[in-house]
Protein backbone atom coordinates (compact mmCIF):
# COMPACT_ATOMS: atom_id res chain seq x y z
CA UNK A 1 0.00 0.00 0.00
CA UNK A 2 1.12 3.51 -0.74
CA UNK A 3 2.12 6.15 1.77
CA UNK A 4 1.08 9.75 2.11
CA UNK A 5 4.07 11.91 3.05
CA UNK A 6 3.56 15.36 4.55
CA UNK A 7 6.33 17.98 4.50
CA UNK A 8 6.01 21.21 6.51
CA UNK A 9 9.47 22.80 6.19
CA UNK A 10 10.64 25.32 3.61
CA UNK A 11 12.95 23.66 1.07
CA UNK A 12 15.24 26.69 1.24
CA UNK A 13 15.78 26.38 4.96
CA UNK A 14 15.91 22.62 5.55
CA UNK A 15 16.44 19.76 3.15
CA UNK A 16 13.44 17.79 4.41
CA UNK A 17 11.82 17.61 0.97
CA UNK A 18 15.04 16.08 -0.45
CA UNK A 19 15.13 13.50 2.34
CA UNK A 20 11.49 12.70 1.73
CA UNK A 21 11.97 12.39 -2.04
CA UNK A 22 14.95 10.07 -1.54
CA UNK A 23 12.85 7.65 0.50
CA UNK A 24 9.43 8.09 -1.12
CA UNK A 25 8.48 5.25 -3.50
CA UNK A 26 6.83 5.74 -6.86
CA UNK A 27 3.07 5.59 -6.39
CA UNK A 28 3.15 7.41 -3.08
CA UNK A 29 1.91 10.95 -2.53
CA UNK A 30 3.50 14.04 -1.01
CA UNK A 31 1.34 16.74 0.55
CA UNK A 32 3.05 20.08 1.17
CA UNK A 33 1.72 21.96 4.21
CA UNK A 34 2.69 25.05 6.26
CA UNK A 35 6.15 26.31 5.16
CA UNK A 36 6.45 23.14 3.05
CA UNK A 37 4.25 24.84 0.43
CA UNK A 38 7.21 26.99 -0.66
CA UNK A 39 8.47 23.83 -2.38
CA UNK A 40 5.43 24.12 -4.69
CA UNK A 41 6.83 27.27 -6.34
CA UNK A 42 7.84 26.86 -9.96
CA UNK A 43 11.21 28.08 -11.17
CA UNK A 44 13.09 28.21 -7.88
CA UNK A 45 16.40 26.71 -6.81
CA UNK A 46 14.37 23.95 -5.12
CA UNK A 47 11.76 23.09 -7.75
CA UNK A 48 13.83 20.77 -9.97
CA UNK A 49 13.82 17.93 -7.47
CA UNK A 50 10.05 17.83 -7.44
CA UNK A 51 9.50 18.20 -11.17
CA UNK A 52 11.88 15.27 -11.71
CA UNK A 53 9.57 12.95 -9.72
CA UNK A 54 6.34 14.60 -10.86
CA UNK A 55 4.09 11.91 -12.33
CA UNK A 56 5.60 8.94 -10.51
CA UNK A 57 4.70 10.61 -7.22
CA UNK A 58 1.49 12.60 -6.80
CA UNK A 59 2.10 16.08 -5.41
CA UNK A 60 -0.46 18.02 -3.39
CA UNK A 61 -0.33 21.34 -1.53
CA UNK A 62 -2.66 22.74 1.09
CA UNK A 63 -4.56 25.67 -0.46
CA UNK A 64 -5.05 27.78 2.69
CA UNK A 65 -1.27 27.67 3.33
CA UNK A 66 -0.60 28.73 -0.29
CA UNK A 67 -3.01 31.69 -0.01
CA UNK A 68 -1.70 32.76 3.40
CA UNK A 69 1.79 33.12 1.93
CA UNK A 70 0.62 35.13 -1.07
CA UNK A 71 1.61 32.49 -3.63
CA UNK A 72 -0.56 32.55 -6.74
CA UNK A 73 -1.81 29.34 -8.31
CA UNK A 74 -0.13 30.13 -11.59
CA UNK A 75 3.27 30.37 -9.93
CA UNK A 76 3.08 26.72 -8.83
CA UNK A 77 4.66 23.62 -10.36
CA UNK A 78 2.48 22.15 -13.08
CA UNK A 79 0.59 18.97 -12.21
CA UNK A 80 0.50 19.77 -8.52
CA UNK A 81 -3.00 19.57 -7.00
CA UNK A 82 -4.32 22.01 -4.40
CA UNK A 83 -6.49 20.58 -1.62
CA UNK A 84 -8.40 22.20 1.25
CA UNK A 85 -8.60 20.83 4.80
CA UNK A 86 -11.29 18.28 3.94
CA UNK A 87 -9.19 17.22 0.94
CA UNK A 88 -6.33 16.65 3.41
CA UNK A 89 -8.63 14.33 5.39
CA UNK A 90 -9.64 12.50 2.20
CA UNK A 91 -5.96 11.89 1.37
CA UNK A 92 -5.25 10.54 4.84
CA UNK A 93 -8.15 8.15 4.34
CA UNK A 94 -7.08 7.14 0.83
CA UNK A 95 -3.48 6.19 1.62
CA UNK A 96 -2.42 3.32 3.87
CA UNK A 97 -0.65 5.52 6.38
CA UNK A 98 0.84 8.96 6.86
CA UNK A 99 4.51 9.74 7.22
CA UNK A 100 5.03 13.24 8.65
CA UNK A 101 8.50 14.58 7.84
CA UNK A 102 9.17 16.99 10.65
Amino acid sequence: MALLHTVNKSPFERNVISDCLRLAKDGSAILLIEDGVYAALEGTSASDEITRRNGSIKFFALGPDIEARGLSEKSLIEGLTLVDYSGFVDLVEEYSSVQSWL
Binding site: Y38, G63, D65, E67, A68, G70, L71
Partner: peptide, 23 residues
Amino acid sequence: VDDGVFQIKKDQETTGINMKNFS
Protein backbone atom coordinates in the same frame (compact mmCIF):
# COMPACT_ATOMS: atom_id res chain seq x y z
CA VAL B 1 17.64 37.43 3.33
CA ASP B 2 16.92 33.72 2.78
CA ASP B 3 13.30 32.82 3.64
CA GLY B 4 12.90 36.27 5.21
CA VAL B 5 11.97 37.59 1.76
CA PHE B 6 8.72 35.61 2.05
CA GLN B 7 7.66 37.96 4.87
CA ILE B 8 7.14 40.82 2.44
CA LYS B 9 5.54 38.84 -0.41
CA LYS B 10 2.46 40.60 -1.80
CA ASP B 11 -1.08 39.14 -1.73
CA GLN B 12 -0.94 37.27 1.60
CA GLU B 13 -4.43 36.16 2.67
CA THR B 14 -4.46 34.28 5.97
CA THR B 15 -8.18 33.80 6.66
CA GLY B 16 -7.89 30.13 5.70
CA ILE B 17 -5.20 29.35 8.29
CA ASN B 18 -6.78 31.47 11.02
CA MET B 19 -3.68 33.56 11.70
CA LYS B 20 -3.15 37.31 11.63
CA ASN B 21 -1.83 38.64 8.32
CA PHE B 22 0.93 41.00 9.48
CA SER B 23 2.31 41.82 6.04
